[in-house]
Design a binder for these strands. Structure first.
Length: 711
DNA sequence: CTTACCTTC
DNA sequence: TCTAGAAGGTAAG
């Protein structure tokens, strides 16, 4: 309760997406430094420079918690409770840390490379009762301001020292200000190493992470290493970061700089109005992502291998067909060889009389892209064969073989990246699980040349993802959230009307009916598709040429469509212009509804191409980034809600931008479905009082035993 | 039109 | 043999 002296200068903004348990960041000592206050600004760091090493501890070394006496452990426990700041970093076996690489060989992938956690504990001088019994027991401790300790993390023997484990975990849950570069890695390590239930921890841990902070300040240049962050700091303020701290121990020096870096970043976040987003959204997201990584998702290797076999078969067949059609043997997957076959041997481009053949971007060679092959497919059998070949190759190499490499004991763990997307979206990598094809691909296997009988087989790339025994998948997704946010932000009356229609079955049907002036029941599937494509194209400002291409109509037709569309939804184009001009006025800074920012300096470029690109980025960022904000907040609130219901053993497995995939024991299925819908649709709670959405955000919930079959 | 990741060459 | 970059394809809006 008392812990938060909250934002030091009286910040009226009380808006909190959910209550923050942070002990407040920093006294604004270093702000004053810039504003002219010179004498009173004794920063923690400067004090440390004078007296860097605790008198009782071994010089330049860390105290190993597992080797401490009972009394020392009690003392440490007390110190941790009273600490004003705790800075920590993972140490690896080769003596490198999250802050500094030592050996050239990148060993960090190796999980067993973890050695310990190095911690620096800082005490505030202002602590009034310095005369604790514990403290006075060691006379020399009176001056102690800094204590460096090491929490060892043993190998997988399970022989972790219970004491140090409990001490560290209670530190993680305490309200003390904790700082770590790449907190996600730390949390991931703790969960796996201590064999914790990931989702039991993920609402209790909050750590300030300079990596996330620096990314928030400039998402287009995410820091990868700690030294990247230091480079950012040096640009902001070269005085604060004093590299010649009188510490001979590198790790201690790094921890000191880490603390300083976070202090500077805190000031920057405040200055750029990003502190709320950082503390209420991003910092709470980190442990959830770590938990998802540790949890993993079940994959049925048998179906995956079965798919692989069938795909291989069909690919071989297609390769053979391609060679026959071409009249020569060539590598079908090579666009270089394909180019030669298509254009030099078969001269298929001569069939396209008036039309220009698409060229490759850089080398300006004849393109063999999908669009080109589609155009050529009526003149020769080869293009169609290649198209199918490519599709199946992609499916096999990426979603069958590619996936199999990551499956261990029937479980797949991907990494969830918080700081890689400049739009603010969460990203999955190694493997990317967010681009698994949604639709089935049908394979027709020809058995025999003389026999008409053929065998059909469908491949659902999501089918191999299966729930655990006795559990069911639940997917909850926001329906067309980006479009709805566009309606909200643009205030376009027609869009608002469509999205506020409670009886709406399908928004694109409604939009089509509004646009084309017909009854919803008269809207055809083609009308709906056309509308959907135009909607997304128009939002992001595509030209009539590109629209004509995607819609397969003439340029003039596309022009007419766009004109009438923008005329019907007037608010959309004015919204785009508002985004662009705001970005121009703010020197390239553009923001989402939750203040997330992106820098787009080219918005004022004199180069037309660069400027147009920047303009599209700006508009796209506001829509996509705002949706990302809300999806993240929803994710956090769902997990925090679940944390209050310990009987409900639900696990969050995957986030696909506007969709959450969870797994839950069968008996709790209905309960979880209700929670998801309730929490995610409660936009007022989601967005807080500052953002009042003009449209509802309906969530559709589906369930099933595999990811491929959700009802 | 944007944001991503992954594969082949 | 290794690597970086080009081209292409997949997803999500």
């Amino acid at each position: 309760m008392m812990k938060g002296l909250m934002l030091v200068e009286g910040n009226p903004r009380k808006r909190k997406v959910s209550s923050s348990s942070f002990q407040t960041p920093f006294k604004d000592a270093s702000i004053k430094k810039h504003q002219g206050g010179q004498t009173k600004q004794i920063s923690i760091k400067q004090m440390m420079e004078k007296e860097p090493i605790a008198s009782h501890s071994v010089r330049d070394s860390f105290t190993d918690v597992s080797k401490m006496s009972h009394d020392d452990r009690i003392l440490l426990e007390e110190r941790l409770k009273k600490a004003s700041e705790v800075v920590m970093t993972l140490m690896y076996k080769d003596k490198s840390s999250q802050l500094r690489e030592i050996s050239q060989t990148t060993k960090k992938e190796v999980d067993d490379g973890i050695d310990s956690i190095a911690v620096s504990i800082t005490h505030s001088l202002a602590t009034p009762n310095r005369s604790d019994i514990a403290e006075s027991r060691e006379g020399s401790c009176q001056q102690l301001q800094q204590w460096y300790v090491l929490f060892p993390l043993d190998g997988g023997d399970g022989q972790n020292d219970q004491w140090s484990r409990d001490m560290f975990l209670s530190l993680m849950e305490s309200g003390v200000r904790k700082i770590c570069f790449d907190a996600q890695e730390l949390m991931h390590t703790l969960m796996t190493h201590y064999k914790l239930q990931p989702f039991e921890m993920c609402c209790k841990w909050e750590v300030l992470d300079p990596k996330v902070a620096a990314w928030l300040l400039d998402p287009d240049h995410p820091p990868i290493t700690f030294s990247d962050v230091l480079d950012v700091i040096k640009k902001v303020d070269r005085k604060t970061l004093q590299s010649d701290v009188k510490l001979t121990n590198l790790v201690q020096k790094d921890l000191t700089n880490l603390s300083t870096a976070m202090e500077v970043l805190y000031q920057q976040l405040k200055k750029h109005n990003l502190w709320d987003l950082f503390s209420s959204v991003e910092a709470k997201l980190t442990p959830i992502l770590a938990a998802m990584e540790v949890q993993g998702i079940g994959v049925n290797v048998r179906t995956l291998k079965d798919y692989g076999k069938r795909l291989r078969d069909k690919i071989d067949e297609l390769e053979d067909k391609a060679h026959k059609a071409a009249g020569c043997v060539f590598q079908v997957s090579s666009h270089v060889q394909l180019r030669q076959v298509l254009f030099d041997q078969l001269k298929l481009d001569q069939n396209l009389q008036g039309q220009k053949l698409a060229r490759t971007n850089v080398q300006n060679l004849k393109s063999t892209s999908e669009a080109v092959l589609v155009k050529l497919q009526d003149f020769h059998p080869l293009p169609k064969i290649v198209l199918e070949y490519r599709q199946l190759m992609k499916l096999n190499s990426t979603y069958v073989d590619g996936l199999l490499e990551f499956v261990n004991n029937g479980t797949l763990h991907t990494s969830w990246e918080q700081t890689s997307a400049s739009t603010g979206r969460v990203q999955s990598a190694s493997p990317n699980i967010q681009n698994i094809p949604k639709q089935a691909i049908v394979i027709v296997k020809e058995r025999n040349k003389d026999e008409m009988a053929s065998d059909c087989f469908s491949i659902w790339a999501r089918e191999p993802f299966t729930s655990q025994e006795g559990c069911t998948f639940i997917a909850a997704d926001f329906q067309s959230i980006e479009l709805r946010l566009l309606a909200h932000m643009s205030g376009d009356p027609v869009l608002l009307k469509v999205f506020n229609n409670k009886h709406s079955q399908d928004v694109f049907v409604d939009l089509a009916s509004e646009w084309l002036g017909m009854k919803t029941c008269d809207v055809t599937t083609a009308d709906r598709e056309k509308t959907k494509r135009i909607v997304y194209s128009v939002i992001y400002g595509v030209g009539p040429e590109k629209l004509a291409e995607t819609l397969a109509v003439s340029k003039d037709e596309a022009k007419t469509f766009m004109k009438s569309f923008l005329n019907k939804f007037k608010g959309v184009s004015s919204f785009s212009h508002r985004c662009i001009s705001s970005c121009q006025r703010h020197n390239g800074v553009i923001r989402t509804i939750f203040n997330r920012l992106r820098l787009i300096p080219n918005i004022n470029s004199s180069n037309f191409h660069a400027r147009s690109y920047a303009e599209r980025q700006a508009v796209n960022f506001v829509v996509q980034g705002s949706a990302a904000d809300i999806c993240k907040i929803a994710m956090i609130q769902v997990m925090h809600k679940l944390a209050t219901m310990p009987h409900l053993k639900a696990r969050l497995l995957v986030q696909i931008h506007d969709e959450l995939l969870l797994e839950v024991p069968d008996q709790h299925l209905q309960e979880l479905k209700d929670i998801l819908k309730t929490v995610m649709e409660a936009t007022a709670t989601l967005c807080g009082p500052k953002v009042v959405l003009k449209v509802p955000l309906p969530v559709s919930v589906s369930e099933g035993k595999t990811w491929g079959h959700l009802t």
